[in-house]
């Protein structure tokens, strides 16, 4: 699924959204949601290679590998949060979008706490 197909899918999707929008907007939202989902599904297969590379070559000593897992979790959460928030913004519900983004930030922060703790330990080790 190269970039040309993705761009064509996006443009065709937006064209269909516009044709349907003025008559009944809920189908326009459905079409834009499906277009986004289709593009994301097409892109998501590329992540496998990136994560294999990360897992294999990022085992530098003093940097244990479960930070990579946390980073991947955070990436996934950001991915889904951004998808949902943009759909709500498209539909004009900016308040719902900001709530979704707030929830995503809180969840990401809660996942990042162990990394922050280990950072503080290393800093204390250097200073102490």
């Amino acid at each position: 699924m190269n970039i040309f197909q993705i761009v064509v899918i996006g443009i065709v999707g937006v064209l269909l959204v516009l044709t349907v929008k003025e008559k009944n907007p809920e189908f326009a939202l459905g079409t834009s949601l499906i277009t986004g989902a289709v593009i994301l599904v097409a892109v998501i297969t590329r992540f496998d290679g990136i994560f294999d590379f990360l897992n294999r070559y990022m085992t530098v000593d003093g940097f244990n590998s479960d930070y990579i897992k946390i980073l991947m979790k955070i990436l996934g959460i950001a991915y889904v949060t951004q998808f949902g928030a943009e759909i709500c913004k498209d539909a004009g519900a900016a308040s719902v979008a900001s709530k979704i983004e707030l929830a995503g930030k809180v969840i990401i922060l809660s996942y990042g706490i162990p990394i922050i703790l280990s950072l503080l330990d290393t800093v204390r080790g250097i200073l102490g």
């Binding site: 189908f27 979790k73 959460i77």
Partner: peptide, 27 residues
């Protein structure tokens, strides 16, 4: 009726997208 049909198709597609995200980022 049209809305229900559209919602069913969207639900199937979104669930496949989210399960792909889940087992890729092992959330």
């Amino acid at each position: 009726a049209g809305l229900i049909i559209v919602l069913m198709v969207i639900a199937k597609e979104i669930s496949s997208l989210f399960s792909a995200v889940r087992n890729l980022f092992n959330l």
